[in-house]
């Protein structure tokens, strides 16, 4: 046994095509592509979530299936269309309802589902690219995170310093620059 043994992974499909479209639509509303740079879909958040559900977050797969289905049925009830096919204003309206749990009834856990997807979207956007998100370090660029470096000089901990951005994932850092 090794201390680094991870839970087993499989390549089984996590989502149906409909579920995948629905998730992509949600994450692209949580972090849209706009003048401030690429959004969640562009940096790979949906892929991040799908691959996490395959192993580390296996136990949350059913919450996703139920939540995505609830979102689609809310969309169909209101417009006759799936969530992914709605225009962004309608999508935002339904997502807000989920976030605030304003329509209790057919799906009790809508706020919990919204928080789950939001949390995972932030992980995909701002986490280390080695997990499949944060493509081209766009998430780190967005918030001005100056990047992983093994040794940080005292100057780089001053408040008024402009820090040269490095673009390394943890794996590259550990295998490269020491």
């Amino acid at each position: 046994m090794s201390a680094l043994r991870f839970a087993g992974t499989t390549n089984a499909e996590v989502f149906t095509p409909n579920e995948r479209h629905c998730l992509e639509a949600i994450v692209s509303r949580i972090i849209p592509a706009d003048t401030n740079g690429p959004g969640a879909v562009e940096v790979g958040c949906a892929l991040y979530i799908e691959s996490a559900l395959r192993d580390a977050y296996r136990s949350q797969k059913s919450a996703y299936s139920a939540g995505l289905a609830a979102l689609d049925s809310r969309a169909i009830e209101r417009t006759g269309k799936l969530f992914a096919a709605l225009d962004i204003n309608e999508q935002d309206r339904i997502l807000s309802e989920f976030e605030l749990n304003t329509r209790v009834g057919e799906y009790q856990d809508s706020a919990a589902f919204f928080e789950l997807v939001r949390r995972h979207t932030l992980e995909g956007m701002f986490g280390d690219p080695l997990y499949g998100g944060n493509a081209n370090f766009a998430g780190w660029d967005l918030i001005g995170y100056p990047g992983l470096r093994m040794y940080v000089t005292p100057e780089l901990q001053r408040m008024d310093v402009a820090i040269h951005r490095l673009r390394l994932s943890a794996k590259q850092l550990m295998h490269g620059s020491r």
Binding site: R29, I31, P32, D92, E99, R118, L122, G127, L142
Partner: peptide, 18 residues
């Protein structure tokens, strides 16, 4: 980074979107 981005919005912005 994730922690930094998942900040309080201090009532000055919504929690998602542009």
């Amino acid at each position: 980074p994730i922690e930094a981005a998942n900040m309080s919005t201090f009532g000055k912005a919504p929690r998602w979107g542009s």
